[in-house]
Amino acid sequence: MARSRELLITLSTIFLIVLVSAPLLSARHYMLFSLLILLISFIPFVIRFAKQNLSSRELVLLAILGAIAAVSRVPFSSLPSVQPTTFVIIVTGIVLGPQSGFVVGVLAAIVSNLFLGQGPWTPWQMYSWGMIGLVAGLLNNRWLMKNMIGRCIYGFIVGFLFGWVMNLWFVIAVIQEFDWNAIVLYYSASFWFDLAHALSNVFFILLFSVPWIKILERFKQKYGIFAET
């Protein structure tokens, strides 16, 4: 089990590196190419979850956390690009482990897009949010996730990375050739939105990660679910 997990992670890291460096190899069909690599890199995790036997309690708990992550945009609709979806996913990853973090991240992307409308961005959101949850879960026993400063740093970095991955396909499609000037120009246009996302992550983690983790931990113990993670 542990070995297969490590294998999966190594594999998907390799694919991620290929994904980012692919424009150097083939800029002409990058859009199609990147989509393929993206799918290959997260399909192993999708299949791994699909093959697992979950109790009904675990299943419903994941479903409701995904729904909470998707719905949590509602009370914040008056604030642009501030939404606790990423926060909910990180907290789930920390408490319930890497796989649950991944599942809730992917689920939040699918569900919110089923209501808001699918688009070429759906697979990218699934990938980004899924990976955010996965990494948060992997680090849950390390220093980074154990203390507040580490969690805030993670939330901040992830806020920017999320925006950058979402920009990636568009940027490469536009410039066709690898050109740092163009990339910097485009990314600076989205800078304020990414910053708002990163700062709101830090804000939510700083104020609410302790009570949320406590609530979820309590649940985990009370009903004895996700015992092995």
Binding site: L59, A63, I64, G66, I110
Partner: peptide
């Protein structure tokens, strides 16, 4: 399994 999960989750959204 994913379909069931998505369906459950979608059902919770209006409720939430």
């Amino acid at each position: 399994q994913w379909a069931l999960l998505t369906m459950l989750s979608m059902r919770f959204v209006p409720l939430l």
